[in-house]
């Protein structure tokens, strides 16, 4: 493939997936793997797992996996095109909703949408918390650190970064303590 058709293939792969990612990027991971490993053969299975691992440990949304894919197959232009393709379609939709929402404040339908969706959002968030903690390193220490941080937000006005550092420090201390105590 030449460069232009590579870039077009990136758009054709990621732009439709942008509108299918409800509830986070994990939902389209299998589709991404199928496209870039199975269909286009841009990556081997091992190569894909390698960049997937990078996207997990690096800061920022896990969806930046597509930025890495673009970078590896078409350099800077590829990284830009892949990132724009995965973010722009869904972002335009959110923007349209935000516009309508704030253009007509205080209407019954807004309260209905916000109140109607809140229990689903709460359920999805808490479910993802439970499944993340179930597979987190450290077992009960991770549960304790997460629970402690959550409780702290209800008690004091501590900034988020301070909370992260406090929680991570408690986690590290407990991890070291359990190793020493055998």
């Amino acid at each position: 493939m030449n460069k232009d058709s590579l870039l077009l293939a990136l758009i054709a792969t990621f732009a439709p997936l942008s509108l299918m990612t409800i509830g986070g990027g994990v939902t389209v991971l299998a589709d991404i793997q199928r496209a870039v490993v199975g269909h286009y053969h841009w990556f081997t299975d091992a190569g894909f797992l390698q960049i997937f691992a990078v996207s997990r440990v690096a800061p920022g949304p896990g969806t930046l996996l597509v930025t890495l894919i673009g970078w590896h197959i078409a350099g800077l232009a590829g990284a830009l095109v892949a990132t724009l393709a995965i973010f722009i379609p869904s972002s335009l939709l959110v923007l349209a909703v935000a516009y309508v929402w704030h253009r007509y404040p205080g209407l019954v339908w807004q309260k209905a949408v916000a109140t109607g969706l809140a229990p689903i959002a709460a359920g999805l968030i808490i479910a993802s918390v439970v499944s993340l903690l179930a597979s987190a390193r450290g077992g009960w220490i991770a549960w304790l650190a997460a629970g402690g941080v959550a409780a702290a937000t209800f008690q004091a006005r501590i900034g988020p970064i301070a909370l992260l550092v406090l929680g991570a420090s408690a986690y590290c201390l407990l991890s070291v303590a359990t190793i020493w105590l055998g």
């Binding site: 942008s18 509108l19 299918m20 990612t21 409800i22 509830g23 986070g24 990027g25 949304p61 969806t63 973010f87 869904s90 972002s91 939709l93 959110v94 909703v97 929402w101 949408v113 916000a114 969706l117 809140a118 689903i120 959002a121 999805l124 968030i125």
Partner: peptide, 9 residues
């Protein structure tokens, strides 16, 4: 709630 229900990250 809206962010969760709409597609996208």
């Amino acid at each position: 709630s809206v962010s969760q229900a709409l597609p996208g990250v």
